[in-house]
Design a protein around this nucleic acid. Structure first.
Lengths: 246, 246
DNA sequence: TATAAGGTATCACGTAACGTGAGGGTCAAC
DNA sequence: GTTGACCCTCACGTTACGTGATACCTTATA
């Protein structure tokens, strides 16, 4: 299949396909004597994968790393895409809900906080990086990050945002039993997030939870998201680490 | 509210807010003697609008045009955002469906065409431009388009893609009665699309439909999307123009 | 009152992901 | 042989910021 045929089939530009070839993301399996690109069925399957990652906001460099990883598995990736797309749908549902609330607010029928006005927006450059790391590892990301020992402002901000989001998520369920499924699901998200930036064993994770209580500054920072959250997290982390989920 | 407070509230960067200020998209209502930006409640409401447009892929220049248009109405915009977000939900549903079909295909339980493999992807730079034009007019877009008389390759491609998409959409319902609601909804999309690039009255629209039959090349091109589509469109366009919908 | 930490500003270069036009070659139908 | 459509590479342009440097401002603390 020639370049324009692929471009028309997929509704992307010829330039896009050239670009993907240039950066080694999608190399046509055949090139004619005149230099024309010919794409095979397998090229199209790879392109489908690439487009799923693009839809989810992954940068092309990252997509290339993931797809060229020997452990990459298309079936597994498709399942992960599906779950990420469902999360994106939840995000859009939240945006729609924000619109509904804003319309009521404008009619004077409902008050809404500043925070509520922005619920659902997520412009982080790659919101699914944490999950990608869990599946495809850290190596490429660490290599790509030229400053291994100092955290850039972006990383710190990303860190902080992801922290805050997870703290809020956990605050919502802090009155539940720490062994409950919902509590363990949420604390798992915390575990995944921490492992995006560091490398915590379950044991270390439990120890970290203890620190949230032992150090008053930690407790204070965490409890601003909801009173008693630090204690709840400590307990949920212990349950998680010991595999004692109900 | 100071710049970092807004950035944290909304989960965007301080640099983003500076950029929006620089380009005149979001100008803080107050600046202190030290030059600090202070954002008002109305600034936050405008920022919410901006973020809705961003979520839908509008370029910042276009957002600025729309928001500064005297006829701009926040309530109306919110309703339009909601409908566009629902369309995006449908697109994600289609992507999820594509994943499900691809997984079955990989198991050998189902065949799928190349076209099916790419159903749901839409990377056009601004998929909702046609609807935006319907609401907020053509002037700014025409001004921004420096080449008023010659169509760039991009515009031709955009044209062609939008054409193809609409033809497919219409082909799906070509066996329906041309006066049926679904037929008239689809042909309305065609009308809107044509008016993105030109300026057709309903009468001219009907005349165009006649041409689809009168000129054999038109018929041939259109019917490749589904046999009998050209006749169906001619009839549906006549019904539409005369307001004879069931 | 001095200090320190965090936050603010502007400036300017860099990045990613293409869009776009120029210039020239290839292919297939007429 | 001609022509229109398609193909190639090259290179500059665009958008939307990220990032680091440099310097000023604000507020809490000792």
């Amino acid at each position: 299949m020639k370049v324009k045929e692929v471009a028309d089939l997929v509704c992307i530009s010829v330039r896009t396909l050239h670009h993907y070839d240039e950066i080694g993301l999608l190399t046509p399996d055949e090139v004619t004597e005149a230099g024309y690109r010919i794409y095979s069925e397998e090229n199209l399957e790879n392109l489908q994968q690439i487009l799923f990652f693009r839809e989810l906001g992954f940068p092309l460099k990252r997509i290339k790393e993931i797809i060229h990883d020997p452990s990459f598995n298309k079936t597994e990736a498709l399942k992960l895409h599906k779950s990420m797309l469902m999360k994106k749908q939840e995000q859009l549902n939240q945006l729609i809900d924000t619109i509904d609330k804003t319309l009521l607010n404008m009619k004077g029928e409902r008050q809404m906080s500043d925070k509520e006005k922005f619920a659902g927006f997520d412009f982080s450059s790659n919101p699914y990086e944490a999950e990608a790391r869990e599946r495809w590892g850290n190596k490429a990301v660490d290599d790509a990050n030229t400053k291994l020992n100092e955290k850039s402002q972006k990383e710190m901000r990303q860190f902080q945002e992801a922290f805050n989001e997870t703290f809020r998520s956990l605050a919502e369920v802090r009155h539940e039993d720490p062994t409950a499924a919902i509590s363990q699901e949420r604390i798992h998200e915390w575990y995944v997030l921490l492992n995006s930036f560091g490398n915590y064993s379950k044991k270390a994770f439990k120890g970290l939870g203890e620190m949230y209580i032992a150090d008053e500054r930690f407790t204070k920072n965490i409890d601003q998201f909801g009173e008693g959250l630090a204690v709840f997290m400590r307990d949920a982390m212990a349950v998680y680490a010991e595999g004692l989920k109900k």
